[in-house]
């Protein structure tokens, strides 16, 4: 790679952080400290991850180390989802289950059908993109469904009182939550290439890959993310319905977020 960023280059790029902090100081936003801490923290985290990844995916290393890395990412993503949406009951377990299902489906297609060769160098970044994007959609879907069922409790109970099973009574709200969680990803997919150049493609081009090759990889990544978000949000929604209704078709009490 001829265009590698040197340590000097990295230091110079810190000027951009200074620009952000300067704007905060100029506009009296009071965010200078947060901007600096975020930048330093991101840099340290990336350096640590880079060092760890160098060990995990170095040539000759067993692929099991990469799988272990993926499992760790799944667990960490589930705890982050839980922290972001504490009002969603059992989100840790549900997120773990949904990420696992999405991993089986998407990694199964990409590696099972030989779209990519199964190596540490492909497995770790692809699983990372899948999990990272799914995490956001999972939080959106879980939060939206819980909000819908809490805020429209009267409507849901009117359906239950008419003899609808809980799954059927929840269907309109599940659909609303899934649409809300998937629409941003669909919009992003539609705008790719026209409005912005996505991360994987930009990274490959900067690293010296031929643009057309970078485009092919990016297209596969976009499809991966679409399938992963659709799978995780559906698993989350169906799993949540089992948690939010009792077996005898009653809606459980859902405290408002402020009650937490």
């Amino acid at each position: 790679m001829n265009d590698a960023v040197s340590w000097v280059g990295l230091s110079v790029s810190l000027l951009l952080v200074a620009v952000a902090a300067g704007i905060s100081w100029w506009q009296r936003l009071g965010l200078q400290r947060q901007i600096l801490v975020a930048a330093v923290r991101a840099l340290v985290q990336l350096l640590l991850v880079g060092a760890a990844l160098s060990l995990v995916i170095s040539p000759g290393r067993s692929i099991w180390w990469s799988w272990l890395w993926v499992v760790a990412m799944l667990g960490y993503a589930a705890t982050v989802a839980r922290r972001r949406a504490p009002e969603v009951p059992h989100l840790l377990t549900l997120a773990l289950a949904s990420f696992t299902v999405a991993a089986v489906v998407t990694l199964g297609v990409l590696f099972g059908l030989h779209v990519f060769p199964l190596t540490g160098r492909t497995l770790v970044p692809i699983a990372g993109m899948m999990i990272g994007n799914s995490m956001t959609a999972t939080v959106l879907a879980g939060r939206r469904l819980t909000d819908e069922l809490r805020d429209k409790r009267d409507e849901v109970e009117a359906r239950l009182a008419l003899g609808q099973p809980s799954r059927q009574a929840a269907t309109p709200y599940v659909r609303a939550a899934l649409r809300a969680a998937l629409t941003p990803q669909i919009e992003t997919t539609k705008a790719t290439g026209l409005v912005f150049l996505p991360g994987a493609m930009t990274g490959l081009i900067l690293a010296g890959a031929a643009p057309f090759q970078a485009v092919l990889v990016q297209a596969v990544v976009m499809f991966l993310v679409l399938a992963a978000t659709a799978t995780t949000t559906t698993v989350i929604a169906l799993g949540l319905i089992r948690q939010l209704f009792t077996p005898d078709h009653r809606l459980v009490y859902l405290p408002a977020p402020a009650d937490h």
Binding site: D154, E155, E157, A158, A161, L162, Q164, P165, H249, R250
Partner: peptide
């Protein structure tokens, strides 16, 4: 069965939705 019961026993709520 709660689903059968709710067909036999209907309910109208204070705030109709």
């Amino acid at each position: 069965d709660p689903l059968v019961l709710r067909h036999r026993v209907g309910m109208v709520f204070q705030r109709s939705v």
